[in-house]
Design a protein around this nucleic acid. Structure first.
Length: 725
DNA sequence: ATGATGATATTTTTT
DNA sequence: ATATCATCAT
C-alpha cells in the first residue's frame, strides 16, 4: 500500500495523529493547525492502510457544512465516493437512527422535526391553553429551560422542584410540552439527541449492533459537545469503540448553548490510556498575529495550555485604530478596504467581524455609500422564512393531521373565516379530550354549539386538507409542493399582498418547488419523499443569504467566523461593554468565553489584522462612551501599530502606562455634577475609576463609572461622593 | 380582520 | 433607534 498520498504534506504532530495506533486519541488542535485535515486523513488512513471497513467509521460534526466538507475531502483522498459512510451532524445521525428504529424509540413512523421557531410557538400555545399568567411566564425562558434539561439528558420525571414553586411550574410546563409533542408526533432538536440516547440505553440489542458496527468514532469540534452528545458518544464507544476526537479548548465559544469544554478533560478520564496530541503549528497567520492571539488567551485560567507558532514571517504589525465614533470607525474601514482593492486584492478576502449583529448596520451604510459590494452572513435562512414555513405546514398536515403545530399555523392562513374564537373552542375541546386539534375540528364541525358559519368553515378546511392529501398521492414531490401552495391559497395570498416583501415571498414559494424538484432523499431510508423532504428542511435550514456571486466584502459576527480565514480582517467595535459584552463582564466564566471569542477573531486573520474601537457609539438610541476593550490591552505593545492617534475623549488605559492628549473635542458635554466623560474619579469604597457615561439631571443624575478593581457601576451622583482626580 | 398604539427589550446560533 | 409583541379600537 502506498501511503504517500495520505501522509504527504503532514507535519510530525499531524502525522502522529493520523497514524496513531488504534486507541482513544484526543487531538488538541489550535486555530489554523490543520484540524479538519487530520480528521479526514485519519479516516482515509483507517480505511486505506489499516484496512478498516468504511462501514465501521462514524464521523460526527456540528454543522451540515462541516459534514459536507469532510465527506468531500475524504472522497478526494480515497478517490471514491463515500456516500455510504456515516458522516453527519449529531442531529442528522440521531435522526437517521430514529427513523430506522422508530418503534423501539417509541415514535410514530412519520414523526416530524420541529425547529426552534416551531417549538416556541408550541410553547406559547400551550401557555394559552393552560391559561397561564403570561406576565409571569416568558415563553423563551420555558423553551430555554426545556432544551437545557434535554441537553442534560433529563426528563420531567428526573427533575425535582426542591420546593421551589417557580421551578415546579417549569417542570410542569416541560411535562405539558412533551405531551403535546407526543400527541402530534413532533420531535424538537434536543429531543432527537435525547431519544437517540435513550434508544440505545433501553435497547441492548440495538446498541450492541451499532457498537459492533462503529469501531471508529471520529468527532470534530469536540469542545462544543453538550452533555447528551457526550453521553451518546460514550455509550456508542462502549468498551470496544475507538474514539478519535479533535477540538480546541481555546475555541469553545458556545457554553451558553450547553457546550462544555470540560468534556475534554472528562474524555481522558472516561477513556483511560487516551493519547493526547497537540497541534500547535499554524499554517494560516503571520507570527505577529499568532503572538497576539497567544498573549490574549494566556489570560484565561482554565485551559489546557497551548502556544501557536509558525515557520512563516512575522509580517505586519497589528493596526489599532481609535475612532471618535462608530461612523468614524466605519469610514476608516472603508478607506482601508478601498486601498485593499486598489492594490488588486479581492474584496472577498476581507472580512469585517463584530461581536453583535446590530453593529453591522453602520458598517453597511458606509459600504453602500462607498459603493463597495458586501455580503452579510447570518439572518433568516431559506427554510426559516415565514412563507416557506407556511407551505411546509400545509405539507406536514397532509402527511400527519395530528400535527397541531402546523395546524394552528395555517388554520386561518389565508383567512377563511376561522377566527380566534373558533380556534379557542378547538383548543378547549382538544385539551378536554386530550386529542389533536384536527380531531377536535372533526368533532366540532358537526357540533351545534358552534355557529353554522364557523362550522362550515371548519368543514371546508378539513375537506381542503383531505383533498390535497388525496390529490398529492400520485404526484411527484415537487408537484405536491406546487399543488399545495396553489390549492391552499397560500400563493394567491402572497400575490395579493402588497407589502414590500410579498414579491420575494412569492419567489421564495416558487423556489421551494425547485428545491423539491432537486431534492434527493437518502435511498437507504424507508420514508416517503415528502417526509424526507420535510425532515431535510428542518435539519438543513439552508443558506443564510442568497449568495451574491459578486466579489464581496464579508460581514459577520465573530461567532460565525469560526472555522473561516481571511487575508484581511477587521475586528470592529472592540470596546469594553461591547466586547467583552456587558452581560458577560461580571461573570469570570463569561469573560473567559469572550476572551476565547477574541482569540477566535484574531486567529481568523492571515496577513493583516486591524482592530478598531470607538470612543463614542450610538447604541439603543443613546450615545454611550466606552474604553478600548481590555483585550486590546492584553496584546503586547510591540506587536501593535497605533494608527493616527488623535485627540479623544477618554484616556486609553490599555497597556498600563502610555498617555495621550486628553483634550476634549468640541461638543463635549458637561454633566450635572461637573463631571467630564473620561474624568478620573475616586470613590470611598470602589476606589479609582473613569467616568463612562451619565444620565439624568440634578438629584436624579446618575453616572456610570468604570472602576479599576470593582468594575463598571452606575451610581447616583448625589450619593456617590466622588472625588475628582 | 386589520391597523394603530404603546410597552419592552436589545449577545452570540446550529440543529 | 428599532424591532417585536400585545392590546385595543375600528
Amino acid at each position: 500500500m502506498d501511503v504517500t498520498p495520505i501522509l504527504e504534506g503532514l507535519n510530525d504532530a499531524q502525522r502522529q495523529a493520523v497514524t496513531a495506533p488504534q486507541k482513544p486519541l484526543l487531538v488538541i488542535a489550535g486555530a489554523g493547525s490543520g484540524k479538519t485535515r487530520v480528521l479526514t486523513h485519519r479516516a482515509a488512513w483507517l480505511i486505506d492502510v489499516e484496512g478498516a471497513s468504511p462501514q465501521s467509521l462514524l464521523a460526527v460534526t456540528f454543522t451540515n457544512k462541516a459534514a459536507a466538507e469532510m465527506r468531500g475531502r475524504i472522497e478526494s483522498l480515497l478517490q471514491m465516493p463515500a456516500s455510504h459512510l456515516w458522516i453527519g451532524t449529531f442531529h442528522g445521525l440521531a435522526h437517521r437512527l430514529l427513523r430506522r428504529h422508530w418503534q423501539e424509540a417509541g415514535l410514530p413512523q412519520n414523526f416530524q422535526i420541529i425547529d426552534s421557531d416551531d417549538q416556541l410557538r408550541l410553547i406559547k400555545r400551550m401557555l394559552k391553553n393552560l391559561e397561564a399568567d403570561d406576565s409571569r411566564w416568558v415563553p423563551r425562558e420555558i423553551q430555554y429551560f426545556i432544551n437545557g434539561q434535554k441537553d442534560e439528558g433529563l426528563r420531567p420525571q428526573h427533575l425535582d422542584d426542591g420546593g421551589d414553586l417557580n421551578r415546579h411550574q417549569f417542570i410542569e410546563f416541560y411535562r405539558g410540552y412533551q405531551e403535546v409533542c407526543e400527541r402530534g408526533g413532533l420531535v424538537d432538536f434536543a429531543e432527537l439527541l435525547l431519544r437517540a440516547h435513550e434508544l440505545w440505553r433501553d435497547n441492548e440489542q440495538v446498541l450492541a449492533h451499532y457498537q459492533r458496527r462503529f469501531r471508529h468514532i471520529l468527532v470534530d469540534e469536540f469542545q462544543d459537545t453538550n452533555a447528551i452528545q457526550y453521553a451518546w458518544l460514550k455509550m456508542l464507544a462502549g468498551k470496544t469503540g475507538i474514539p478519535f476526537v479533535v477540538g480546541d479548548d481555546d475555541q469553545s465559544i458556545y457554553r451558553w448553548r450547553g457546550a462544555r469544554v470540560e468534556h475534554i478533560t472528562r474524555f481522558q478520564k472516561d477513556f483511560p490510556g487516551t493519547e493526547v496530541i497537540k497541534l500547535e503549528q499554524n499554517y494560516r497567520s503571520t507570527a505577529t498575529i499568532l503572538e497576539a492571539a497567544n498573549a490574549v488567551i494566556k489570560n484565561n485560567n482554565s485551559r489546557m495550555g497551548k502556544n501557536l507558532w509558525t515557520e512563516g514571517a512575522s509580517g505586519e504589525a497589528i493596526k489599532i485604530y481609535s475612532a471618535y465614533n462608530e461612523r468614524d470607525e466605519a469610514s476608516f474601514i472603508v478607506g482601508r478596504l478601498r486601498e485593499w482593492s486598489d492594490q488588486g486584492n479581492a474584496r472577498a478576502d476581507a472580512a469585517l467581524l463584530y461581536r453583535s449583529n446590530a453593529q453591522s448596520r453602520v458598517l453597511e451604510e458606509a459600504l453602500i455609500n462607498a459603493g463597495i459590494p458586501y455580503r452579510v452572513y447570518g439572518g433568516l435562512r431559506f427554510f426559516e422564512r415565514q412563507e416557506i414555513k407556511d407551505a411546509l405546514a400545509y405539507l406536514r398536515l397532509t402527511s400527519n393531521r395530528d400535527d397541531d403545530s402546523s395546524f394552528e399555523r395555517v388554520i386561518n392562513k389565508p383567512t377563511r373565516g376561522i377566527g380566534a374564537r373558533s380556534v379557542d373552542s378547538l383548543r378547549a375541546y382538544a385539551r378536554a379530550n386530550a386529542c389533536s386539534m384536527w380531531r377536535a375540528t372533526g368533532a366540532l364541525a358537526s357540533d351545534e354549539a358552534l355557529g353554522s358559519r364557523a362550522r362550515s368553515a371548519l368543514t371546508n378546511f378539513m375537506n381542503l386538507i383531505e383533498l390535497m392529501a388525496r390529490e398529492c398521492k400520485s404526484l411527484d414531490l415537487h408537484e405536491q409542493v406546487d399543488h399545495v401552495i396553489q390549492r391552499s391559497g397560500l400563493l394567491e395570498h402572497y400575490k395579493k399582498d402588497k407589502g414590500e416583501k410579498s414579491e420575494t415571498r412569492v419567489e421564495n414559494l416558487e423556489e421551494l418547488v425547485s428545491a423539491a424538484r432537486g431534492f434527493e432523499g437518502d435511498p437507504e431510508e424507508d420514508m416517503s419523499p415528502l417526509d424526507a423532504f420535510l425532515s431535510h428542511a428542518a435539519l438543513e435550514a439552508g443558506e443564510g443569504q442568497a449568495d451574491a456571486w459578486e466579489d464581496c466584502v464579508q460581514l459577520m459576527t465573530m461567532h460565525s467566523a469560526k472555522g473561516l480565514e481571511f487575508p484581511l480582517v477587521f475586528l470592529c467595535g472592540v470596546e469594553d461593554g461591547l466586547f467583552p459584552h456587558q452581560r458577560s463582564i461580571a461573570d469570570p466564566n463569561g469573560l473567559e468565553e469572550e476572551r476565547r471569542l477574541c482569540y477566535v477573531g484574531i486567529t481568523r486573520a492571515m496577513q493583516t489584522l486591524y482592530i478598531t474601537h470607538a470612543e463614542q457609539r450610538r447604541l439603543h438610541g443613546t450615545d454611550s462612551f466606552a474604553l478600548p476593550s481590555r483585550f486590546i490591552g492584553e496584546i503586547p505593545r510591540e506587536l501593535v501599530e497605533e494608527i493616527r492617534p488623535k485627540v479623544q475623549v477618554t484616556r486609553p488605559n490599555y497597556g498600563g502606562g502610555h498617555s495621550r492628549a486628553a483634550a476634549a473635542p468640541s461638543g463635549q458635554r458637561e454633566s450635572a455634577g461637573g463631571l467630564r466623560l473620561g474624568q478620573h474619579v475616586r470613590h470611598g469604597k470602589f476606589g479609582d475609576g473613569v467616568v463612562l457615561n451619565y444620565e439624568g439631571q440634578g438629584a436624579h443624575a446618575r453616572v456610570q463609572v468604570n472602576f479599576e478593581s470593582a468594575g463598571t457601576k452606575w451610581l447616583v451622583l448625589s450619593y456617590a461622593n466622588l472625588d475628582l482626580m
